[in-house]
């Protein structure tokens, strides 16, 4: 029981972590809490659905429910969601920024964007539940009384691959360096010749692409529905802040902690309170460390 809960916690936590990296980026580089992030995740998941419906999810490889074509679908989802994020920035957030709007105004704009996106998905794909593949996977017992589905293992592996790749990009490339500089101080970075607007676009693209991956993974291991991203939002926020905004591995660990908290909580409190767990964990941490577990104090 407890073993299974831990395994499930890690598996859901990995998906939350992917979403949390994007939130963390927007907190750090774009400097606002993006409430529209969950719906970008949904948009990504549905883009992959359209691809698999038009093309195919491929012939299942081994015990996994999809073929290599699904990787193409994930890639397309990432590109669609990343581009959508850039487009939304150009239409909405960029205008607000150029007016020097308060960053809390940006948060509020993201509320509106979220509502629009969620209902666009509803309008285009309808309210019904979708699956990439109707085939049901039977979980394999990997440890005594701990069962996981093959797809989940692949998802976990892909998640860690993406995180490591992204870490290397941030550490080793010029873009990564520029982004870190921007996170420290946009003004200073600008003076040093960092193209702020280009960096903002890149940050949006990465956030959107990672959200899309989280969405497709969630769709693959559970199902697709128009509110899927919005319903994950609190968990994703909690993970991002738990880890300390701007810290990549912080976001990953935050995601895992949130996943574990949710799944372990049902052992002690009624399952009805599960959704509140990430948040309670967050409040607890913020009370002790107002800048998150791995963040550094920031001056206003």
């Amino acid at each position: 029981m407890i073993g299974q809960a831990i395994a499930d916690g890690i598996l859901t936590g990995a998906i939350i972590a992917l979403g949390a990296i994007g939130i963390s980026l927007s907190l750090q580089i774009l400097r606002f809490a993006n409430f529209g992030h969950g719906d970008i995740l949904t948009l990504g998941a549905y883009s992959a659905l359209t691809f698999t419906a038009v093309a195919t999810a491929g012939v299942p490889i081994g015990p996994v429910s999809f073929g290599w074509q699904f990787l193409v679908a994930i890639l397309i989802a990432a590109i669609v969601a990343g581009s959508a994020a850039i487009l939304i920035d150009a239409i909405v957030y960029n205008r607000l920024r150029s007016r020097n709007a308060h960053r809390l105004t940006m948060i509020f704009a993201s509320f509106g964007v979220a509502l629009v996106l969620r209902n666009l998905v509803l309008l285009i794909w309808g309210p019904d539940v979708h699956y990439y593949s109707r085939e049901l996977q039977i979980a394999v017992e990997i440890l005594p009384n701990v069962r996981v589905m093959p797809d989940q293992i692949v998802v976990l592996g892909l998640t860690f691959a993406v995180v490591i790749f992204f870490y290397l990009v941030l550490r080793l490339t010029r873009i990564g360096m520029a982004m870190r500089a921007m996170a420290e101080s946009p003004t200073l970075a600008g003076i040093c010749g960092v193209e702020i607007r280009k960096m903002i676009r890149i940050a949006w693209f990465i956030a959107g692409a990672l959200a899309a991956m989280a969405g497709t993974f969630l769709g693959l291991t559970v199902q697709l529905r128009p509110e899927m991203g919005f319903n994950l939002l609190l968990a994703v926020f909690a993970a991002a802040i738990l880890g300390g905004s701007g810290s990549l591995f912080g976001a990953v660990i935050g995601g895992l902690l949130v996943g574990l908290a949710e799944n372990l909580s049902v052992l002690v409190v009624p399952a009805g309170y599960k959704t509140a767990m990430p948040f309670l964990l967050l409040m607890l941490v913020l009370y002790i460390r107002p800048y998150g577990l791995f963040g550094t104090p920031e001056r206003h």
């Binding site: 606002f32 809490a33 802040i241 509140a276 913020l286 206003h300």
Partner: peptide
């Protein structure tokens, strides 16, 4: 005492709770 956007998320979470 939290910065503004953390406060936003915290209050959002309180509403859910």
């Amino acid at each position: 005492r939290l910065r503004g956007d953390y406060l936003a998320i915290a209050t959002f979470g309180i509403a859910v709770t």
